[in-house]
Design a protein around this nucleic acid. Structure first.
Length: 301
DNA sequence: CTCGATCCCTGGACGC
DNA sequence: TGCGTCCAGGGATCGA
């Protein structure tokens, strides 16, 4: 589950490994997670990967045309890549066999191949340029590592939605996912079902600093590998060893010793300590997980 | 505005 | 061994 720290880790690895390389050719396989596959096939060959940035949970491969003076130099162009749950983007030697779920191969000018693999195809890939790119990026909220106290307070404290839903909402903050939401709430001693608007200023600030500290530490440790996350060099992260709440149902809270509980908030498993993270008095947001029935897909449309 | 439900997708865990 | 079922989860979408 690549979230901000994992995506940052992959982006940094790619920046070192492929920035400056030119894309020679593109081969696509399954394309149902791509915005416009033909645009990727058409626009990428001949372009150079100028640099690799992270934007929320996205990676942006910034592209430039080969020849300076080309009219397209004027507008920005990028390949936007979201890793979803199981996505991976990494350079390979051409002779390495293809992974079963390789959906895109970008042959580079040094003979290596940048390959995108994604078993579940929850990821996203899009070639965007100019105004379209700018408009896409504008949809997302503040970067949690950069967000000021004032902006955090406005975005989180200004909504009555549950704090867990707010942290996961990419239009509020970009880059936080389930793991780091739970870890920061545990750290700040806030129950996931608490309303954002009901958080006192000092709680809000405790949450912001906890979130930033946790994300920074996780980046230092190259992310959390809880399913099969590996970075651009194929190396897993180490931050999962530092999880205090996420995935620890039934285990003792590192602060108070009570058993960590798991509930569903905002449709996601939410791990918290019932001793340290007091349930909101009023609301009924603490509902037990409801059993889901009727898994059947009908027809596809 | 905020909510839950449903769908997308596959692999892994588990029960039988 | 193998089949059925459940679950994981980011995000889009829809109706309440």
């Amino acid at each position: 589950m690549p979230e901000l720290p994992e995506v940052e880790t992959v982006a940094r690895g790619l920046q070192l490994a492929v920035a400056g390389r030119r894309i020679v050719s593109v081969t696509l396989r399954k394309t149902d997670f791509m915005d416009d596959p033909s645009a990727i096939e058409r626009e990428l060959p001949g372009r150079q990967i100028a640099r690799v940035d992270r934007f929320g949970k996205f990676m942006l491969l910034r592209l430039v045309a080969e020849r300076a003076g080309d009219e397209q130099e004027a507008s920005s162009q990028a390949l936007l890549v979201h890793l979803g749950m199981t996505g991976n983007l990494a350079p390979h030697f051409a002779e390495q066999p293809l992974d079963k779920h390789t959906h895109a191969t970008f042959v580079l000018d040094d003979g290596r191949e940048l390959r995108y693999t994604d078993a579940r195809r929850f990821g996203r890939m899009a070639y965007l340029a100019g105004e379209t790119l700018a408009a896409e990026l504008l949809k997302f909220g503040a970067d949690p590592l950069e967000v000021t106290a004032e902006e955090f307070s406005r975005r989180i404290g200004g909504s009555r939605a549950r704090i867990k839903a707010l942290l996961l909402d990419q239009t509020v903050l970009r880059g936080v996912g389930n793991i780091y939401a739970d870890e920061s709430l545990w750290s700040a001693r806030i129950h996931p079902a608490k309303s954002g608007a009901k958080l006192k200023p000092e709680k809000l600030e405790r949450l912001r600093t906890a979130l930033q500290k946790i994300l920074s530490k996780a980046i230092q440790m190259r992310g959390s590998s809880i399913s099969d996350f590996v970075d651009a060099e194929g190396r897993p992260g180490d931050y999962q060893q530092h999880h205090r709440a996420y995935g620890r149902e039934g285990k003792k809270c590192f602060r108070c010793g009570r058993a960590i509980k798991r509930i569903i908030v905002a449709g996601r498993s939410s791990y918290f300590c019932p001793g340290c993270q007091a349930a909101p008095r009023d609301r009924a947001g603490v509902r037990r997980k409801t059993k889901r029935k009727g898994r059947g897909r009908t027809s596809k449309r």
